[in-house]
């Protein structure tokens, strides 16, 4: 086999990545998952193939991951997003580390040892706190496009503490702050701070820290704030949103031919 495909059907977006046997990326694509996971998976795979500009027909292996992993009809194997993120993260950062992945619907903390083996993990509890869904909800309340959050947070001059844990209560808290005259950039910085607090509650975050996920990909300022908070550098891989798909593609490499 020459080509290795990872498809990550997340709650918010679906990602595909194609690697060659040297683990070089030939193509990738990201699309909203929408309501038809199967179609989303086929679409990102098709687009990745097009970008790869090579004939990828029979000689490939596919591993699917993410919430919709069981909907990927063309996958040869499935793996949870927890295993795939650990594997994808370790490719770029081959040392013991703690991975913080902030996805659309959940956030995960995964501990990886020096050999790349996963030693433990935690996912957020049932609610949306600390996830992309939380940012989307608050952006919607503030009538801000989601891709504008990062730029706004960068302009903030002061720290606003958001105390609530619950997304709905946070929205109410924000209304109070608007009434008090707090500027929008400061509010956005405040909600970034809330996402960071949720991650800090999940793990002591010892040693090296890597961050991945869509929220990290589109909001580098959040990573900067996180670094300031913990007082050390955080490693972010080149395509943070594709970490799960990358890990899945790496698992595809382990599928033996025949």
């Amino acid at each position: 086999m020459n080509y290795f495909v990872g498809v990550d059907v997340g709650a918010s977006t679906t990602k595909a990545i194609i690697l060659d046997e040297n683990k070089d990326i030939l193509g990738y694509a990201v699309r909203h998952s929408g309501v038809d996971f199967k179609a989303a998976a086929e679409r990102v795979f098709g687009e990745s193939k097009k970008k790869a500009q090579r004939r990828i027909a029979d000689s490939h292996a596919v591993v699917a991951t993410g919430y919709g992993r069981r909907n990927v009809a063309f996958a040869h194997r499935i793996k949870t997003e927890i295993s795939c993120h650990a594997k994808g993260s370790y490719l770029h950062f081959p040392h013991a580390h703690t991975l913080i992945d902030i996805g659309g619907q959940d956030s995960k903390i995964i501990r990886v040892d020096d050999s790349g083996k996963r030693t433990g993990f935690r996912m957020n509890r049932k609610c949306a706190a600390g996830t992309g869904a939380f940012l989307e909800e608050i952006a919607n309340r503030l009538r801000i496009k989601i891709d504008k959050l990062n730029g706004l947070a960068e302009k903030s001059k002061r720290n606003i503490e958001i105390g609530s844990y619950c997304t709905v209560f946070t929205a109410t808290e924000i209304l109070t702050k608007i009434r008090e005259g707090v500027e929008v950039p400061d509010l956005v910085r405040g909600i970034f701070g809330s996402v960071i607090k949720r991650a800090l509650e999940m793990d002591p975050l010892e040693g090296n820290i890597v961050m991945t996920g869509g929220v990290v990909a589109y909001n580098p300022f959040l990573v900067k704030m996180f670094e300031e908070k913990i007082g050390r550098e955080i490693f972010v891989p080149p395509f943070p949103q594709l970490t799960g798909a990358l890990g899945a593609a790496l698992y595809a490499m382990e599928i033996k031919e025949g």
Partner: peptide
């Protein structure tokens, strides 16, 4: 109402994957 089937099962599956890789 306090149980998310998808999340619980993904956690369990990931846990077994962790045991497999041990």
């Amino acid at each position: 109402r306090c149980y998310s089937e998808e999340q619980a099962k993904t956690n369990i599956e990931a846990f077994i994957e962790q045991l497999e890789a041990k």
